[in-house]
Design a protein around this nucleic acid. Structure first.
Lengths: 165, 165
DNA sequence: ATTGGATCGCTCAGCGCTAAGGGACTGGAC
DNA sequence: GTCCAGTCCCTTAGCGCTGAGCGATCCAAT
């Protein structure tokens, strides 16, 4: 009936009854759930010799287009990390032969990052287990509940400027 | 009508139509929202010379009991980081005079961490702005929607073993 | 009374990220 | 054609965390 966040809310009610801590009921759970989910998913990545950062890059390339090719700037936009982080992620992936970097033919500053055959095999091998883990994480919710939850979260994201259209 | 995650789902549908990527509609948004919220909240912490890690410790001490006192193990349990991280966080806070470490009187291994007067003033000064920022983050949702969202998230957390009762 | 597994907090090497900044190149304004 | 603000990717110092492991202490079983 009560999770960790309920305890936190109760404590605030005792120590600072003057404050309205109610937003924590949502945001505290959001943060905690994201953390728990991350831990579970990381275990699956590790089974394939990956970490979350590498998976993030490989999966983004995999889904982006049929050539599995993107610029570092594109990867940066989709990942919410800095350009320095992308450079270092690509260094590691390139050293393992999972992606290649080739100069752009149309922009002297640009680089094209492409999934290699080896990288493609790897990410395609990880995906089924990844989705299975995600499915398990959501097992407590019905299809209808998931849809409603997704819709509410989208409303929030849009209100915070995460639009695409 | 569409956020970043809708685009991702569409891409998976094109590149891997055989996979059921629907769990990402929930988990992708959850991760992204947690990240956006963290960024916003961090800005408020910075205005008071704090980072998320320090706020986490100070707030936990502030709400825990009237003495604002806890063991490092207790802080570790509430924060989901390793014991090494707690030691280092306490080092930083102690150096700034925001907490004190005193040997436990009942357990030769133990330490009691207590908020100083200075630490108490600081955290109480940060809290109103923190809650205001959280309120703003949720502005797009009605009271009823927030409650329903919190309930759904609690269901998930409980199903993943985050119970307290 | 002794023993041995569990728990306490701490240490430290390694790692990935941020923040700041640099050189190269682009493309619109003039 | 020239300029120059903007964008591209990369570099690097510094930082906080993890993961492994430490000695000290506790406590239940014998």
């Amino acid at each position: 009936m009560a999770d960790h966040v309920d305890l936190i809310l109760e404590q605030w009610g005792e120590q600072r009854p003057d404050l309205d801590a109610s937003p924590m009921a949502v945001l505290g759970r959001l943060k905690r759930l994201a953390q728990v989910a991350d831990n579970q998913l990381r275990a699956n990545f590790a089974r394939h010799g990956l970490d979350s950062a590498s998976f993030d890059v490989l999966a983004t390339l995999r889904r982006s287009n049929s050539e599995h090719r993107l610029t570092p700037a594109g990867l940066m936009r989709s990942s919410m990390v800095t350009s320095g982080a992308i450079t270092q992620r690509l260094d590691r992936l390139e050293a393992r032969g999972l992606v290649t970097r080739t100069p752009s033919e149309t922009d002297g500053r640009g680089v094209q990052v492409t999934l290699t055959a080896k990288g493609l095999r790897l990410i395609d091998g990880v995906l089924p287990g990844h989705l299975q883990t995600e499915e398990t994480l959501l097992a407590a919710l019905s299809k209808a509940e998931r849809k409603q939850l997704a819709d509410t979260l989208r409303t929030l994201l849009e209100s915070l400027g995460d639009r695409t259209d």
